[in-house]
Simulated scan of single mutants.
Amino acid sequence: MLLEIIACTPEEAAAAEAGGADRIEWIADPGVGGVTPDLSRAAEMRRAVKVPIRVMVRPRGGGFVYSEDEREQMRRDIRRILAAGGLDVVTGVLTPQGTVDESALAGLLNAGPGLAFTFHRAFDEAVDLRRALDTLSVYPQVTDVLTSGGAPGAPEGAAVLAELLRRSAGRPPRILAGAGLTADNLRPFLDATGADRIHIGSAARFGGDPSAPIDPERVRTIRRILEASAGQV
């Protein structure tokens, strides 16, 4: 079981690790779903935790169809992440037709040779999730796909997520289930889908408030649910 927690600061990352996070997704501006954070803090973030960190590369909120200027900014940011060392990437790009933008994606991957990539919830806006997963499977650097199964939240997308998990079994990218998961709905979700990689945002924070700091005890509760589920497999 992998537990990834969203963090915006080194302090939040440390709190998430203290609660049992296996990996951090470092973002800014969670209110718009996350954008590229202040990369000048990369060394500080890396010192804050021992677990892996994946850095959001997204120049703005809104959709996932980008201009060439925006794509160049994303490539520059990935080169900075590569130079910083010890970090990987979270990003996603679509065509106006709602397919994975393979040309743009190849440029991003080439900007960070050797880095691991998560294709984020841009995936959920693709017109055909199964086709999108098959497309991403040809890129070895894309190790994870963060998805709610195309639904507003992962619990509502459980049936599609279960199908995507079956489709991806034994080959990358791995499905990272996220959006709307909490300590209350996690166990039935795991039972319904068989998911073994979980992404948590607001549920890791005091009171479940997206603007509140990370509560290590909430992370521990989620960690215990994952371990209990894994123990029954």
Rank of each mutant, 00 (worst) to 15 (best):
T182P: 09
H199C: 08
R197A: 15
E227H: 13
V89M: 05
S40N: 05
D88C: 10
L39A: 07
V145H: 01
A154S: 05
G180E: 01
L161P: 12
D215C: 15
Y139F: 15
P96Q: 02
L87H: 10
L136F: 09
A83P: 14
T143S: 09
Y66A: 00
R79M: 07
M74W: 00
A83E: 14
E102C: 14
V219S: 07
E163G: 15
G201I: 04
G34W: 03
R197K: 10
Q73H: 00
V90M: 04
T193L: 01
F64C: 08
L161N: 12
A158Y: 08
G150V: 06
I225K: 09
F64Y: 11
A203D: 04
A106T: 15
L105S: 09
S229K: 13
R205I: 06
T9Y: 03
D77N: 05
A159E: 14
A84T: 03
G107M: 06
A43M: 04
R218I: 03
R60F: 01
D215Y: 12
T36I: 00
G153I: 07
D69I: 01
R171Q: 13
V127R: 15
G153S: 14
R41L: 10
G63T: 01
D134M: 11
A43I: 02
P155K: 10
P37D: 08
P213A: 14
A169K: 11
S137C: 09
G33W: 10
G208K: 11
G92I: 03
T9E: 03
V93Q: 00
G178A: 03
D184E: 15
D69C: 02
I27D: 00
G153E: 11
D196C: 09
A21G: 03
D191H: 12
R171T: 10
L94K: 02
A83C: 09
S67A: 11
A13E: 04
G86C: 05
V55P: 06
E72M: 00
F123E: 06
N185D: 07
S40A: 13
S229L: 04
A14C: 06
V142F: 09
S67R: 01
G34R: 04
E44K: 11
L181P: 03
E163T: 15
K50D: 12
G153V: 14
M74H: 00
D209G: 12
D215L: 11
A154W: 02
G153W: 00
T193N: 01
H199D: 05
R171K: 15
T135W: 03
Q97W: 10
T143R: 15
L165R: 15
R223I: 05
G201H: 05
R167G: 07
I53R: 11
L165F: 09
A42W: 02
A21N: 04
A16M: 05
R121P: 12
M1N: 09
I78T: 05
A183F: 02
E4Y: 12
D38W: 06
A158S: 14
A230P: 11
A154L: 03
G20A: 10
I214E: 01
R174G: 13
E217T: 10
L176Y: 07
G92T: 04
F189G: 12
E102A: 14
P37C: 09
R54Y: 13
V93Y: 01
G201S: 07
I6S: 10
D124A: 07
T221Y: 01
T9Q: 07
D215R: 13
D69N: 08
A177V: 12
T182F: 06
M45T: 05
F64D: 05
A228F: 08
T147K: 08
